Computed example of a mutant assay.
Amino acid sequence: MRHLILSAVLAGASLFAMSAQAEEIQEGKQYVAIDPAVPVSVPGKIEVVELFWYGCPHCYQFEPTLEPWVEKLPEDVHFVRVPAMFGGVWNVHGQMFIALESMGVEPKVHAAVFEAIHKEGKKLSTPEEMAEFLATQGVDQEAFLKTYNSFGVKAQVEKAKKLAAAYQVSGVPVLVVNGKYRFDIGSSGGPEQTLVVADQLIDMERTAE
């Protein structure tokens, strides 16, 4: 009985802590206001952007927490992934993401790319290496290479670079709500808390409309 009571007390304390954290969210603590605000890609919806890099271990570890949350987002929230481009392999991986997105296959292979890099030790640092791996996931090699080197993808790469600069991002993973508020795992207090902050900012934007 004593253990049951203690468990109940701890569970209650945990819920209270989460509630308190949600109530105490404030600029300069859990999140930073972006000035000037960045226009959203789909007007009329509340946009949540994740800036990430396939080679980032923190991004990889964040995925199991982030993905279920994304799947349950309401209709008025638009989620977007933007690859961070800080040079070298960051740019190469970012271009791969954009190519896969352009082909419409990114959702099917997103997790597999993360696993290949972080569990299988693949670098995926050249288009040819990417194409060879992606073929094992059902992606046509020739079509991928053609898309990867296309003008359209290269234009999207430049757009992604400009977005990261506009969001004033220097590391990943980072979330941005409605082009106005930037926050990350460190400022929020952990992966789960990051999504608590995201939910609060989404509610704040919904109320402001």
Rank of each mutant, 00 (worst) to 15 (best):
L66P: 01
V48H: 02
W53A: 03
P64D: 12
F62A: 14
W69T: 06
E50G: 08
P43A: 02
V42I: 13
V38H: 13
Y60A: 14
A37D: 04
V48W: 06
V40P: 09
C59V: 12
P43M: 01
I46P: 00
H58M: 12
V42K: 13
P39F: 05
Y54N: 08
V70Q: 09
P39Y: 08
P64V: 06
P68A: 13
Y54E: 12
P64Y: 14
G44S: 00
P64Q: 12
V38A: 10
P68N: 14
F52E: 05
F62G: 08
T65Y: 11
P68I: 12
P57C: 09
V70L: 04
P68M: 06
E63P: 02
I46L: 06
S41H: 11
W69Y: 09
G44R: 04
P64H: 10
E50F: 05
E50W: 01
V38G: 12
E47I: 03
A37Q: 12
E47A: 05
K45A: 07
G55H: 07
L51E: 07
E63W: 06
F52D: 04
G55E: 05
C56N: 05
W69M: 07
P43Y: 06
V42H: 02
P68S: 15
V48L: 11
G44Y: 00
E63N: 15
H58P: 09
V49N: 12
S41Q: 15
V49W: 00
P57Q: 15
H58N: 04
W69A: 08
E67Q: 15
P36D: 13
Q61W: 05
Q61Y: 12
V38C: 10
V48E: 08
L51T: 03
Y60F: 15
P57N: 14
E63F: 05
V38L: 10
P36T: 10
P43I: 03
V40T: 15
D35S: 13
W53P: 02
V38P: 03
H58D: 11
W69E: 05
W53D: 08
P43K: 04
W53N: 10
C56P: 02
V49L: 10
E63V: 10
P68G: 12
V38Q: 07
P57W: 09
L66G: 03
L51V: 10
I46G: 02
P36R: 07
L51H: 03
H58G: 04
K45F: 01
E50Y: 00
E67L: 09
V38E: 11
E67S: 14
I46Q: 02
A37G: 02
V38R: 08
E47H: 03
C59T: 04
K45G: 01
P43W: 00
E63H: 14
G55M: 03
F62V: 04
V70W: 04
Y54T: 07
V40Q: 13
W69C: 14
E67T: 14
I46A: 07
L66N: 00
T65E: 03
D35R: 12
Y60R: 05
I46R: 01
W53E: 11
G55Q: 07
W53M: 06
L51I: 11
Y60H: 14
K45V: 03
K45M: 11
